[in-house]
Design a protein around this nucleic acid. Structure first.
Length: 299
RNA sequence: GGUUUCCUGGCCGAGCGGUUAGGCACAGCUCUGCAAAAGCUGCUACAGCGGUUCGAAUCCGCUGGAAACCU
């Protein structure tokens, strides 16, 4: 059975470095599951691997998209599986790294199959929401899919929107697509490795990493992306704060402080996700020897 | 020394006799296609001391602190 080494962890825990070491050791390639490092226009603010790091091992899904492209977890699941199929023709081990929990899960466990949503359906929902707000979304979904409506967070517009889009697109309830038969089985076995740092260590690393980003020119990168600020990938820590700064809403100093703060908030959410999803073996970033031992034991 | 204004939770900030204002932070959490997103929960403070009142962050007095102006 082929093995997929899955490396998770909050931002700034050292996932990139570990992935490269393991890729070199097993002479294999890395698949990035980072929902922001896909975009070639966003490098400094996403802590993308450096040119040297990219040269140190083959990488997939870094710079694979432009901020004007539409992309979703579903697309990623499909694309990643395709890459893995090819890779496993020649290798017994591959590596999947990233901080986007849902993306990791999509590859390892799979999501239920949903049809693509047309622009029409999205427009219908957007218009309804614009005119009727959250209440409209709630009423519509309650009517079209009472089963799912009862289960989800009814205060969360993003959840309501998505379910409603599926209902409108397919003229079937969203819940009809859930667990329709089993998710397609994976031709590999994941080995889950979670990198963890103590809260103080993590926060200190986030702080210094943000300082490095600033020194490397994050502000200029953000300025260049100002025309794309309303594209989904730009709702990202490190960019939104600078947009506010360019708008004159906050000072540069405040923006930097906010970036640090929001990175901590983000890291906390990631930790919550990883704690609740998946069967992770937890390590400190320095414990490379132990990690290798674990992986070898699994081979 | 005198006059005036101000003092609200970690921070910002409403309030002007009877309400948990609210936002941010912080902490905890949710999660099947915008996921670095989006959402939920917790966090009852009014500088101190007296007084008025059925009831005071809100009115009065004293004390302390801050700012402005005057001499």
């Amino acid at each position: 059975m082929k093995k997929l080494i899955v490396i998770g962890g909050a931002t700034a825990t050292g996932k990139t470095a570990l992935a490269i070491r393991l890729a070199q050791h097993f002479n294999t390639a890395i698949l990035s599951a980072d929902s922001r490092q896909f975009y070639r226009e966003m490098s400094i603010g996403t802590a993308k691997p450096s040119t040297d790091e990219l040269a140190a091992a083959p990488h997939h899904f870094i710079d694979s998209l432009s901020v004007v492209d539409d992309y979703s977890v579903g697309d990623f699941e499909r694309d990643a599986l395709a890459v893995l199929d090819k890779l496993f023709l020649k290798k017994d081990v591959a590596i999947l790294v990233g901080g986007s929990g849902l993306y990791l899960r999509a590859v390892c466990e799979g999501l239920d199959k949903f049809p693509d949503i047309s622009g029409e359906s999205k427009k219908t929902v957007a218009l309804g929401e614009k005119e009727g707000g959250l209440v409209w979304l709630q009423r519509e979904l309650a009517q079209r899919d009472p089963v799912h409506f009862a289960k989800i967070d009814q205060q969360n517009p993003a959840r309501l929107r998505r379910a409603l889009e599926v209902c409108i697109e397919t003229a079937q309830p969203y819940s009809a697509f859930l667990q329709q038969g089993k998710k397609s089985p994976r031709p590999f076995q994941p080995i889950y490795i979670l990198l963890e740092l103590s809260r103080p260590e993590l926060y200190a690393r986030i702080e210094s990493r943000v300082d490095e980003m600033i020194a490397s020119g994050l502000e200029a990168e953000a300025r260049g992306l100002l025309p794309y600020r309303h594209r989904p990938p730009l709702s990202t820590v490190g960019y939104e704060e600078f947009f506010d700064c360019f708008d004159g809403k906050i000072s540069r100093e405040e923006a930097i402080g906010k970036i640090k703060q929001h990175s901590r908030n983000y890291a906390k959410r990631q930790m919550t996700w990883f704690a609740k999803h998946g069967d992770w073996k937890v390590f400190k970033p320095r414990e490379e020897a132990e990690i290798l031992a674990l992986v070898n034991a699994g081979l």
